[in-house]
Design a binder for these strands. Structure first.
Lengths: 193, 193
DNA sequence: CCTACCGATCGGTAGG
DNA sequence: CCTACCGATCGGTAGG
């Protein structure tokens, strides 16, 4: 039951936002009464925290594995894992973006404590590539990483909306945007690509 | 008075979202009573529409001018204008992102009708550069444009949050991210840069 | 997990 | 532009 509630909360918080979703609506979607929902999660705020935690925990366990893997194309495999996770349920990136807008201080604190060491690892790795001559010299590793993450999350969260700047119907526009994202990322990172 | 209401609505919709902002809160911020606000804007939905229209109208008038200007660095001047507009009041990009999440169908319709011709112009321009040999061959112009816009809006809307992936205090992180954004954009667009 | 109920706040109207 | 007021819905509790 608890998981069924979390599932519907993720879906509804993603499409309508936290303030735009009442616990009544979530309870209806699950098929229970409001007080029953509040038995599992003591308050709406508590439910939000657990939704957030649920989505975040994936990366706390997955990132170490991902960055430890040796691959002949570390860039490609990292982007692929990032895209796959968010594309698997677009509500994940929608919630991520919404949280950054709704609770900037909270998100800042969390990613600063939990994710920064890993970003440091990647930026050091880029700096090494710079010294060994495979990475372009004028890159700013930290900004580069932030912008790539921004493109990935942005594409999955609102890419279908922005793609109407370009085409009427949009089946699979995501795929071609992701391909271009990889091309841009590579071109801006490597000397030869 | 009407403008004072719009001003506060933009500020509050930006920071707390449409559903997260009551007309009471807006009225308080302006210093009038709720029914007085509803005299100027008949309903909350109507107020949202006018806020949206107010922000959008800028581009309907500015884009033609911007794209008609001949410059020795069209890329640089375009990015600069885009960044300056959004940075002038970060609530603009926050509202843009929020609208894409909250009302995807509506935003899709609006940008499809109003902005698509201009994006077509830019993508044709990129294609010309491709033929004349100054632009890289493997670019997908439409996806490229979408991703650049995504980076700009993303940087202004949530760049300060994501920058905590990298630094503790963030004064002027925006500026260095925007510089890296331009570098990435150029590198992925031009053969020589 | 439910019924019954709470005060507070929501968007909005009547009427001046 | 205000006072006074509306029904509906909000998050949440008591009690079984």
């Amino acid at each position: 039951m608890r998981n069924k509630i979390l599932e519907q909360a993720i879906r509804l918080f993603g499409s309508s936002g936290f303030e735009g979703t009442s616990i009544q609506t979530i309870a209806d979607a699950v098929g229970i009464k409001k007080p029953s929902l509040l038995y599992h999660f003591n308050s709406k705020a508590k439910l939000r925290d657990e939704v957030y935690k649920h989505l975040f925990d994936h990366w706390k366990s997955e990132l170490p594995k991902l960055l430890a893997t040796t691959s002949e194309d570390p860039f490609g495999s990292f982007i692929k894992a990032l895209v796959e996770y968010f594309q698997d349920d677009p509500n994940r990136s929608k919630i991520a973006v919404r949280e950054m807008l709704d609770r900037p201080e909270f998100v800042r604190k969390v990613i600063s404590e939990e994710l920064r060491p890993w970003v440091k690892l990647v930026s050091d790795y880029i700096r090494m590539g710079k010294q060994s001559g495979v990475v372009v010299e004028d890159i700013d590793p930290e900004s580069y990483i932030i912008l790539v993450i921004m493109m990935v999350i942005g594409t999955v969260a609102v890419g279908d909306v922005l793609s109407s700047l370009v085409v009427q119907e949009n089946i699979d526009t995501d795929k071609v945007i992701i391909e271009e994202l990889k091309r841009i990322g590579r071109k801006a990172l490597f000397k030869k690509s």
